[in-house]
Computed example of a mutant assay.
Amino acid sequence: MQPLQHTQAVATLGLQGDHRMTKTPGSARQVTLISEEFIQQIGHFLGGRVIRPEQLRRNLVVKNINLNALRYQTFRIGDALFEATALCHPCSRMEQELGKGGFAAMLGHGGLCCKVLESGTLRLGDAIELCPSETPSV
């Protein structure tokens, strides 16, 4: 995990350089998002600990948006178009990374899994723009 100022989203694959690009092309979990607010909530559930975003193993950290409300929606970040496909549930590695209770602390606060529908560049600070006219029916 390494923080970047910008990256490329590649349609049907994920983020340039991410290990998922070659493992799961076409999957519903090409990119994962988590919010700063969820990270703070997880820390609260773990007794007020400060949680570093890289500990949670998500691709993108966003803020000021209810991620759960984006499920099944399409949205743009920078030039790329995404579809939020599912909630991103924690894995057993969270107990190792966050300590006892890490898995439970993330339940309901793990973020979203997304597909990349259109390639494009994402930059630090880009806003999430909902694209309701492009949202597929569920």
Rank of each mutant, 00 (worst) to 15 (best):
N68S: 12
L70F: 04
A80V: 08
E54K: 06
A84L: 04
T74G: 07
V61N: 03
R58N: 03
E83I: 10
I77Q: 05
R76V: 12
Q55W: 13
L60N: 07
G47L: 02
H44N: 12
L60M: 08
R58M: 04
G48C: 06
Q55E: 11
G78A: 04
I65G: 00
I77T: 07
R49S: 07
R57I: 05
K63S: 09
L56I: 08
N66H: 03
A69F: 03
V61A: 04
E54F: 13
G78Q: 02
N68A: 12
A84D: 13
I51F: 10
A84S: 10
L56C: 05
D79Q: 12
A69N: 09
V50I: 15
P53C: 05
F75N: 06
R52M: 15
R57S: 08
L46S: 03
I51A: 08
N66I: 04
I51C: 09
P53W: 13
L70P: 04
E54C: 03
R71N: 14
V62L: 02
Y72M: 14
L60D: 07
R49Q: 15
G47I: 04
I65L: 01
H44W: 12
N68T: 12
L46F: 08
F45S: 12
L67V: 00
I77N: 04
A84I: 05
L70H: 03
A84K: 01
I51P: 03
T74E: 09
T74M: 09
R58L: 02
D79P: 01
L67S: 00
E54L: 08
V50C: 10
Q73D: 15
G47C: 06
R71W: 10
V50T: 15
K63H: 08
E54W: 14
G47A: 04
I51S: 06
T74Q: 09
V50R: 13
G78T: 11
R71H: 12
R76Y: 13
Q73H: 14
N66Q: 10
V61I: 12
G78L: 02
Y72F: 15
P53L: 06
Y72W: 15
N59T: 07
V50E: 15
N66R: 02
V61P: 00
K63P: 00
R71A: 13
L81S: 07
F75C: 06
F82E: 14
V62G: 00
L81H: 02
R71G: 07
G78K: 01
L70W: 08
R52H: 15
R49C: 07
N64L: 00
F45G: 06
L81E: 11
R57E: 09
V61Q: 06
R76T: 15
A69C: 02
G78E: 10
K63A: 03
A69D: 13
R49N: 06
K63C: 03
L56T: 08
Q73K: 14
I65D: 02
N59K: 05
I77R: 02
E83F: 09
A80Q: 03
L70M: 08
N64V: 01
F45E: 09
E83M: 11
L70D: 11
I51T: 12
N59W: 08
I51W: 11
L81V: 13
L56P: 00
F45D: 11
V62H: 01
G48W: 07
G48N: 06
L81A: 07
R58T: 03
Q73G: 09
R57Q: 11
V50S: 15
R49L: 11
P53G: 05
Y72V: 14
Q73W: 09
L46V: 04
R57H: 10
G47F: 08
Q73V: 13
P53T: 10
